[in-house]
């Protein structure tokens, strides 16, 4: 049973009706509702297409946060073989909001690192809703450095509301950990590719997504601040998140125009959560395509390319 977002309500009604019809038909053999149900299905499909063709930025935020959207774990399970999770920052703890480890991607050994939000109450709490603490970033730093030493490409999967704003996180140096993680991304002499699959929440995302190539799923978002946060600061009203989402230009489409990301990965009809295997496969293809040309470059060239990319960023303006 799909969870519907508020703007999907009309769709929920049609799909609900179709479901009811089918249930009726199952109970009484003489009723033939096949045609009617099929008509409703077509109607639902058209509506879904229409809804998702021109999602507003705020709706994209909602889709990006959809609880059934595939998460880091799903991508790793489907796209990588021999995944061997590596844990801990060797200083304080293992942060379950960040998962990472050795794996094979198309036979190529790689280091894969990502934010994991969890998919039920228990795992969400365990994973802290994908909000990493300093330990998480320090684990990522450790893994990236290891990848650098052994010449393994690094793949990061970004999906976080942001770094965790907590007392302990601050005391243990949340900002320092993020700064060092970004710095490590820029320093390692191996290919680094990143994909934003849900929310790219501010510094917590940059710490992983400072890469040679960055892709975003069609309905994912990547922003300096959440629309709610921005609305409460600039509009003095958190309810203005729709306006803020609009103004922040946080969609994959706008980020592509601004030259901040390199590729948009199309999502199945109605968003990644409606057909997770298809979405995951598309992400796999995008990773492959981004990684392949980088494999030919040596360490210094990779580092130089990454730095140049960020130094020259920001010369593109959004038109209209």
């Amino acid at each position: 049973m799909t969870q519907y977002l508020d703007f999907e309500k009309p769709l929920a009604e049609i799909e609900g009706k179709a479901e009811e019809l089918r249930a009726l038909a199952r109970n009484s053999a003489e009723m033939d509702v096949g045609d009617e149900a099929a008509a409703l299905d077509t109607k639902a499909a058209t509506l879904l297409d229409d809804l998702y063709k021109n999602l507003t930025p705020w709706r994209k935020c909602q889709v990006a946060r959809h609880p059934e959207r595939p998460h880091c774990r799903d991508y790793i399970d489907a796209l990588f073989q021999e995944f061997t999770p590596l844990a801990g920052d060797r200083n304080f703890a293992d942060d379950m909001a960040v998962m990472g480890g050795l794996a094979r991607f198309n036979d190529q050994p790689v280091m894969v690192i990502g934010h994991e939000k969890g998919n039920d109450t228990k795992s969400r709490i365990e994973r802290n809703f994908g909000m990493a603490r300093p330990e998480g970033y320090r684990k990522a730093i450790r893994l990236m450095e290891m990848a650098g030493r052994f010449g393994l490409p690094v793949i990061t999967i970004v999906d976080t509301p942001g770094a965790y704003p907590g007392k302990g996180a601050e005391e243990r140096g949340q900002s320092e950990a993020i700064a060092r993680s970004t710095e490590t991304c820029l320093r390692i002499p191996v290919p680094l590719v990143s994909v934003v699959v849900g929310e790219g929440g501010s510094g917590g995302a940059v710490a992983f997504a400072t890469a040679n190539k960055v892709a975003m799923l069609e309905h994912s978002v990547y922003s300096v601040i959440s629309p709610e946060g921005c609305a409460s600061i600039l509009w003095k009203d958190a309810e203005k998140m729709r306006e803020a989402a609009e103004a922040l230009r946080l969609t994959a489409q706008d980020l592509m125009k601004l030259g901040v990301i390199d590729r948009i990965v199309a999502e199945p009809r109605g968003g990644a959560h409606r057909d997770a295997p298809a979405a995951i496969a598309s992400v796999g293809k995008a990773l492959e395509a981004m990684l392949e040309p980088l494999m030919a470059l040596d360490g210094p060239a990779l580092v130089a390319e990454r730095r140049k990319k960020y130094l020259t960023m920001g010369n593109q303006r959004l038109t209209a």
Binding site: T182, V224, R249
Partner: peptide
């Protein structure tokens, strides 16, 4: 913090300034 009015481009100053430090 970052200048929200420059959206993602303000966020991109994190890696940019980090390159400067490097």
């Amino acid at each position: 913090g970052a200048r929200m009015q420059e959206g993602i481009l303000s966020l991109m100053q994190m890696p940019r300034s980090t390159v400067a430090v490097q």
